[in-house]
Nucleic acid binder design. Structure first.
Lengths: 152, 152
DNA sequence: TCTGAGGTAGCAATATTATGCATCATTTCG
DNA sequence: CGAAATGATGCATAATATTGCTACCTCAGA
């Protein structure tokens, strides 16, 4: 991630927690005033990255940054997986990830930290992580994403 | 509120907390399977009433019902205000609500319980509630809404 | 029963957000 | 440095959500 992107996302996080913002376009204006000129598309992606929730209220829609909105744990999986990943299989809504050495625990923690709603929970052994997903479709999505992360 | 609406919203709340739902249309299909046939417009309104947040995640958008999503405290203000409201004035981002007898405390609590993002906080005296809003615009919105609630 | 008030919900139009694709920028390696 | 790979972003458009308006339904009171 570029420095510019990181700083912009910091600014977004601050704006969102500081003010009651009601649309990405409104946020865009505030960012422009502060010297960041980007399109709404980019903000949509930033909001996804930051997990900023859109909450409807009696007085209109508002964005709020919640527990997972930081950028801490998010970077963990992309660095851990390529290191420790060995192979993966899945059946129904269960995914089994094989890792090298004692890689299961840290990977399970990183996965939990992501807070992916497709994932109900994980169980880590020595070099095996079991991921329990919400559904078969969810498992497929998760598996695909993990594989993409691992392969780099 | 009609019984049908209440039951439907109960069903929505359960579905949303049970599954990973990604759009109002998807929710609509699930409701139809369960015997509720309504349009997406209605669901949009239900989601607002229930304060169901739309959270973007790496694996797509998901809805989640949070702390304020119940229907408890929400009914309080509409019943309290018409009873206790005397008059209201506001200046900048401050709103002062005058109430009858010892009405300030319960009204302040009901307002707090709403969790309106336009409102930073409230201070209640004997028969005066001070509402500190996020901005002048926020104060205007809040004042308008409170007035509408009071006048019935 | 008739009538009016208040509340719901559908429809259609509008507003907002997400995304596929192409392009430009940045980093990595040889 | 130059080429290739990866990442970031804009543009156009698709997907989703919100809302004004109207119709209808229910309940209370005359």
């Amino acid at each position: 991630m570029t420095a510019a992107k990181r700083k912009r996302q910091d600014a977004i996080l601050e704006l969102v927690t500081t003010r009651a913002i009601g649309s990405q376009e409104e946020l865009r204006q505030l960012l422009i005033e502060r010297g960041w000129e980007v399109t709404q598309s980019t903000l949509s992606r930033d909001m996804r990255d930051l997990r900023i929730a859109r909450v409807p209220t009696p007085s209109g829609v508002r964005y709020t940054a919640g527990e997972y909105s930081g950028e801490e744990g998010r970077a963990m999986l992309p660095t851990l997986l390529p290191q420790l990943f060995q192979k993966m299989e899945f059946t129904r809504e269960l995914i089994v990830v094989k890792t090298f050495s004692a890689g299961a625990q840290p990977i399970a923690e990183a996965i939990d930290a992501e807070g992916d709603p497709d994932i109900l929970g994980t169980i880590a052994g020595e070099n095996t992580v079991l991921i329990i997903c919400r559904s078969e479709a969810a498992a497929a999505r998760v598996a695909k994403r993990l594989l993409a992360l691992a392969e780099r």
